[in-house]
Design a protein around this nucleic acid. Structure first.
Lengths: 128, 128
DNA sequence: CTGTATCCCTGTAGATACTG
DNA sequence: CAGTATCTACAGGGATACAG
C-alpha cells in the first residue's frame, strides 16, 4: 500500500467534522458574510448587478463579482446577460440556491435578535 | 449639522445590509467555519478542550482556543475550569448559544445534502 | 492538560485604474 | 453598466516553543 492521501479517504459519507471533507469548503462558502447577504437580497426575485451592489451596502465591486461567480459556479445563482448597450446582467437564485434562503435568513434574524444580548455579554466579559 | 459619522447612525434598527451595522460582525462570527463545528460538536452536552479538539478534526490549538474565547466573550459558551492537576476545562453552550444549534445544523445538513449537486455544478461550469 | 507567545506565510479584501 | 487587472495592506491561521 502506497502513501495514504491527505484527509478523508474518498467514498465515505461526507462529514464536515473530518478534515479534508469537501463539505467543509461548502460550509465556508455558504456561511460567508457576502454570500449570506446576497442570498437574502435576491430572495425569490431577480436583481441586476448594480441593484445588488446598492442593497448589500459597502460591498466592493470586486467582492460582489467574485462572490457571484463562485455562487454561479456552485449552482446557487443563474447569471443572465442581456446583450444591450449599456449591458444588463441579472442574477436569480437557482432552486438549490433558494433552499439556502431559510437557513441563512435564520442566521440573519439571529444576529438582529441577539445583538443586545451579545453586546451585554461583551460588557460583562470586559468588566470581569 | 456636522460631518456624518461613518456607517449606520446609532439608534436605528439593526440591519446587516447596512455597512457598519454591528450585526454584520455577529453574522461573521456565527457563520465562521470553526464556530459552526464547535456549536455542533457541543450540542446539548459538555466537552473538555481535548475532546473538542478531537471532534473538530484538524483544528489547531490556537484556533480552538481563540474561537472558544470569542464565543465565551459573546455569551455563547460557558467555560468552567476545574483546579485540578492536570487541569480540566469544560465547555458548554449557554442558552443563547443553544439557539444557534438549529440554524447552524441546517447549514451543516445543507452542505452534506447538496455536496453532489455542487460538485456537478462545478463540472458543468468547468466544461462551459 | 490547557493554555500563551512568537514567527511567518498565505489568502483575502479594499482601492484604484482601465475596458467592452 | 458590468466587469477585469493590479497593487497593496492587513488579518487569519498554521507551526513551533514554552508555561502554569
Amino acid at each position: 500500500m502506497v502513501t495514504m492521501a491527505e484527509g478523508r479517504p474518498p467514498g465515505l459519507d461526507p462529514d464536515p467534522y473530518q478534515q479534508g471533507c469537501p463539505t467543509r469548503h461548502i460550509l465556508d462558502r455558504i456561511g460567508d458574510r457576502w454570500t449570506v447577504l446576497i442570498v437574502g437580497a435576491l430572495g425569490d426575485g431577480t436583481l441586476r448587478f448594480s441593484e445588488l451592489r446598492r442593497r448589500v451596502d459597502g460591498i466592493s465591486q470586486k467582492m460582489l463579482t467574485q462572490t457571484l461567480r463562485e455562487m454561479e459556479r456552485d449552482g446557487l445563482v443563474t447569471r443572465t446577460v442581456y446583450p444591450e448597450v449599456p449591458p444588463r446582467v441579472e442574477y436569480t437564485l437557482t432552486d438549490a440556491g433558494s433552499t439556502l434562503r431559510g437557513p441563512l435568513k435564520a442566521l440573519e434574524d439571529w444576529s438582529i435578535q441577539h445583538l443586545p444580548g451579545v453586546l451585554a455579554a461583551r460588557e460583562r466579559y470586559a468588566d470581569a
